[in-house]
Design a protein around this nucleic acid. Sequence first.
DNA 1: GTCTATAAAGCGATAGAC
DNA 2: GTCTATCGCTTTATAGAC
Lengths: 180, 180
Amino acid sequence: MILASAFEVFSKNGYLNSSMAEIARGAEMTVPGITNHFPTKAQLLEEVLKERDLDANNHLLGRHGADLLRGVLNIVSRDEAEDNLTQLFAILSAEASVADHPAHQYFTQRYEVVLENVTRGFAEAAKEGQLRTGVDPEAAAQFLIALSDGLQLQRLYRVGKHSQTELMRTFLDNQLIDAP
Amino acid sequence: MILASAFEVFSKNGYLNSSMAEIARGAEMTVPGITNHFPTKAQLLEEVLKERDLDANNHLLGRHGADLLRGVLNIVSRDEAEDNLTQLFAILSAEASVADHPAHQYFTQRYEVVLENVTRGFAEAAKEGQLRTGVDPEAAAQFLIALSDGLQLQRLYRVGKHSQTELMRTFLDNQLIDAP
DNA sequence: GTCTATAAAGCGATAGAC
DNA sequence: GTCTATCGCTTTATAGAC
């Protein structure tokens, strides 16, 4: 129950503004009860992030090309209902852009891997004749990832009538030649 | 010099992780010397944000339609060199998505106004026959704003070979019928 | 208008009992 | 494995001298 409470608190406040006391309260324990399992607050955050990444990785395993890109969309669509998860990554990815943040390395690597995979998805789709001609795979990948991050923010502020999934699907349909 | 130091510190750390002591150090003053002008840290943040918005508003004043949209692109392009400003808005817009953040109301209103203006830009462009047929103005506006926010994040993590300005210009050129 | 000094509270982390 | 108690530090904000 410690990780669940930590996830909830980090999602609400980000990392920097979360306290071990609040996490302990949510887990119905005391602070030393937690630090016995996770010695520092930073290590607790890392475990929360690792746990959440396993899902996405499993869902994309073995997919390629246009199918991989549709898989990314599925994940976004599924996460769209979970406000906490959205907020966790929205806030953390921003505050962790500062070099000395405990999760800086994690997010740096995450962005590199995601961009690499999505770029590969577009490149493979191109090879199979499923990508509209003249589309640069890496540019399209940067586009799609930016859409995901940017639209998440709009959702948190409850602004705009079109949903994240809807707009990302529109973009993808415009880049790919036929929707399966 | 107080506002300049506050801007610099907030940009580096976000709001929550910035201390009045660090701002005072940058301004070569003591903490009470600052609180005499700005009683609380939250009020200091608000002044910093207000000051920064004046620029953008002035630059867009009196523009409309496709010209307004190009103006938005100019602002993005100009800000792209300023890492501090980028980071200030990237971090703050994320951490202020929590309702009790001192800048929550500011960013809520900011997103509403920006979306409204950009939507109007696309709608006016459509009326003047400059928008590709079948493009929904609000969807295009959400797209452009999401691109701005999302690509800012990619830039902070130094990921992706295409720049924010380049990709946003590509998107806009694809939506508009002729580039002036 | 800026300072020194300090209040009052919260923080992460640890020691040691049970 | 979880607790109470506490250390040492940092935080925002204020009081009062100059």
